[in-house]
């Protein structure tokens, strides 16, 4: 800016009534260019600004811990003693030859199958029932979700008493009808069953409501047409309802898989600790992680176990995705 111009401006300032001098062409150009730049930036950047809170929070509480866990897993790291030095992939090498890890993996998968298959089947049937014109439908629809909002502590106390070996209600009933008591914690399969019951009790309603929502999107006239053609209720369910909610079923399978790979709360409550029974008969991978990292303060190894869960979930999710796309393409070729 030249000296003369600045002198002119100072005169203007001394007489406020005088009209302001028009900006010079260069200045106007500059201002226009700046506002164009700003609006371009606004167009380009503001969407990112709007979504950034999620990414900042995800980065801080999601991505960073995952990466930091990996970093820790490459070290000999005690919870209280801290970093004891870089050991590369030693923790993972140990993990791959660790019998306790395979035991935990087997337990996790076993409980997963035992819990999820009946749960999803039952949820499907329940949703179908709730989708019909039954009496007190609203009441039952609310009813199925109640276990989901029950406090874990209350659930712990109730199920602990139900599955007691000597003084539990279930064993009392079994003895009364002559079946005999079951060693709920000692027997591997019995303990898996007990845990599966706890999981299903808690999550059944959740999946039911998801199915119900999907079912309500199915056009009514399909059922009417089928009914006119003389299809039974069962046939309608098998050939209209199930195929129509198939994407939702896959969604619940994926969500359940992710949830079950991290199975922790129920077995911990059931066994009152991370060890999962006297012989680890129901110790899941997540419990092993806690036992190592917190109970035995072996943070490095615990982190390696944690990462194995992460990898497992990714693998299972990929398998699911492959499976889903197979089904979809099969469905499409059928239609053709």
């Amino acid at each position: 800016m030249s000296v003369v111009k600045s002198g002119a401006r100072s005169r203007d300032e001394s007489s406020p009534g005088a009209p302001r001098e028009d900006p010079s062409p260069t200045q106007r150009e500059r201002r226009e260019r700046r506002s164009a730049l700003l609006s371009r930036l606004d167009m380009r950047l503001s969407p990112y600004m709007f979504v950034s809170p999620y990414f900042i929070i995800f980065g801080t509480f999601g991505l960073f811990p995952v990466l930091f866990t990996f970093w820790i897993s490459l070290h000999d790291w005690g919870l209280l003693t801290g970093n004891q030095g870089f050991i590369g992939l030693d923790n993972y090498v140990t993990l791959l030859s660790d019998a306790k890890f395979y035991n935990a993996l087997g337990n996790t998968l076993g409980i997963f199958l035992l819990a999820i298959v009946p749960q999803l089947l039952l949820a499907l049937l329940l949703a179908d029932t709730l989708n019909r014109n039954i009496r007190l439908r609203g009441f039952f629809r609310v009813g199925v979700i109640i276990p989901y909002i029950t406090s874990i502590a209350a659930m712990a106390i109730i199920f602990g008493q139900l599955f007691g070996r000597d003084f539990g209600l279930i064993n009392y009933a079994l003895e009364t009808i002559g079946v005999g008591a079951v060693e709920w914690t000692n027997n591997r399969f019995a303990s898996w069953t007990a845990i599966a019951v706890m999981i299903d009790w808690r999550w059944l309603g959740f999946n039911t409501l998801i199915y119900l929502a999907a079912m309500q999107a199915i056009p009514r006239d399909m059922y009417e047409a089928a009914a006119i053609d003389g299809a039974s209720r069962l046939r309608q369910f098998a050939q209209i309802t199930v195929p129509m909610v198939r994407p939702t079923i896959m969604f619940t399978v994926i969500i359940s898989t992710i949830g079950q790979m991290q199975l922790f709360t129920e077995p911990v409550i059931f066994g009152r600790g991370y060890e999962g029974g006297t012989q680890g008969q129901f110790q899941t991978v997540a419990m092993l992680m806690f036992e190592e990292a917190m109970g035995r303060q072996n943070f490095g190894y615990g982190s390696a176990v944690a990462w194995s869960i992460f990898v497992l979930i990714v693998v299972f999710a990929l398998v699911n995705v492959l499976f889903v796309s197979r089904i979809r393409s099969a469905g499409e070729s059928e239609r053709r």
Binding site: I152, G160, V268
Partner: peptide
């Protein structure tokens, strides 16, 4: 206390 302990561990 059995269950309460477990719940405490979890929470």
């Amino acid at each position: 206390h059995g269950a309460r302990r477990a719940a405490a561990i979890v929470s």
